[in-house]
Write a protein that binds this DNA or RNA. Sequence first.
RNA 1: GGAGACGUAGUUCAGUUGGUUAGAACGCCGGCCUGUCACGCCGGAGGUCGCGAGUUCAAGUCUCGUCGUCUCCGCCA
Length: 593
Amino acid sequence: MHPYRTHTCGDLRRTDADKQVKLSGWVHRKRDHGGVIFVDLRDHYGITQIVVNPDSPFFKEVETLRNESVITFTGQVVLRTQDTINPNMVTGEIEVVAQDFLLESSVEESLPFTVNQELDCPEETRLSYRFLDLRRERMHKNILLRSKTTALVRQHLCDRGFIEYHTPILTSSSPEGARDYLVPSRLYPGQFYALPQAPQQFKQLLMVSGFDKYFQIAPCFRDEDSRADRSPGEFYQIDMEMSFITQDDLFVELEGLMVRIFRELSSKHIVAETFPRIAFRDAMEWYGTDKPDIRYEMKMVDCTDIFTDCELKVFSSQAQSGGVVKVINAKGAADRPRKFFDEMERYARSEGAKGLAWVALRDGDMKGPIVKFMSDAEKKALCERVGAVEGDALFFGAGKRQETNELMGKVRQALARQLDLVDRNVVAFCWIVDFPMFERNPDTGQIEFSHNPFSMPQGGMEALQTMDPLDILAYQYDIVCNGIELSSGAIRNHRPDIMLKAFDIAGYSESVVKSKFPALWKAFHYGAPPHGGIAPGLDRIIMLLADEPNIREIIAFPLNQRAQDLLMGAPNQVDLRQLEELHIDVVLPPENA
RNA sequence: GGAGACGUAGUUCAGUUGGUUAGAACGCCGGCCUGUCACGCCGGAGGUCGCGAGUUCAAGUCUCGUCGUCUCCGCCA
């Protein structure tokens, strides 16, 4: 017989009755009746109940076992009597009567938290004992889901003709973007490698190398502060790039991948399998953000022109001075108590609003503090414009266009939460398209790239030569799911002449382009195919699949918020000899010296 | 770098207006228990109330500082 097991703890069924078996695993839970002990034995695959009878020579030893000890039982599978069957367990129709027992590994200390229940405990403790934390059902499931996701992505993309490549981890520091992680060079004193923030230039070079369809589940390293949905240090992208494609081709390809992931790995309903496309400017006007949650509608509506001559100066003065009046129709919210409206206003103020006007359509009339300042014509036009009917409540924001859009966008989200419009069992994707190529820096007045300088401007060279730079759009797009930005992507600019012109508009000379991006600049002079791509964040996709609010819950060994690994003790100090080899002198800041 | 919330037993939490010896559940230790499956019953141990000052006759409770954790802003082409 195998020294550890003949079956796993999730294997045995009634058809295995009378078999002689051996099982190994952890003590999940123990029920000691004095005369008989039940041990729930757990491994990766499941839980099986072991029965230890009082005449067993190892009865005393089992009695003193602590939870999470690792043990091996040999015994016979027996059918449970009808009244002792546990319908909640897949192995609940049988149990194993122990005949032999071996303690493989005992638990020496009391556990820092319970493994057999999902009770809250400090994250610091969980990360310090991550190997225990990962035994818990929820974490175990999350890590399995991660594996299933990467396996499905690989299978799907390979089936679609994509090829997976490896790109360097030690590369050169990039001049723009996030802060790099640097690796000192031993051979070249004073010089450094950088860990890639993304394999952006390599995947483009692979396209120039003629490979056509690239993907990689790519580690990316950025030395930036963390967020709930942003791991410090490192994260993974499903990095993709294709040659000879249009934006539409890429959208179809990615929609297929996303729909397959969510269909096969979650039970959530996908609202639309062809994702709606929303122009960046429309997104800002309708939702006040470039990552709208479109699980609910509640677009804001521009009503500026209605209130040009309104008695309410807050509205008319904005309407006359280039500002806007934006209105959100909260369907069916009119009968909410006064407290609801007061709290919405308080929220708006906390986000920087000067106030939040509202009206409620109740009892065949319009109610609210500002109603007396509105003429009948204004009321009528307002209701028509926003489609308001009896029972609806309207919320108003007035001010400068961009500020008001962003503010009312937050109000929209808060309203959706309050009115319970957010369905957790739904995924709503959308594309945000037509990002502007350039924008004016409000501080310096300079024209700058608004996103990736390597995106192809819509209209190509002609647009750059003839249009107002601020009106030029780029083939630059984001994919957004439930209000979370999963990725940016672009059809790239593969033409050196167009690139030079674009950089010229942003105030950069030819020498800057050459020196900042030498690889691509050189490559694009030797026959570069039109190409484009995208790189959805793997971690965020898994968060959505697992319904986890924090990215650390879907990573086996994450850094904490302050970028430390509490289990391994990283970062740590190194030997002086190592520093000398690397020609590194450490100069500590005064407070640490 | 900035802001907010939180910090009481191994863990999750309660702790009144500042007032006697800081409680409960789970876990741990000991005892009882032959059909449980979150087994049950009895008993016990376990606390510098994050740390340091201050106010007060009296501080877990109020004030200030500090440290830690999480969340957000900045940052993330």
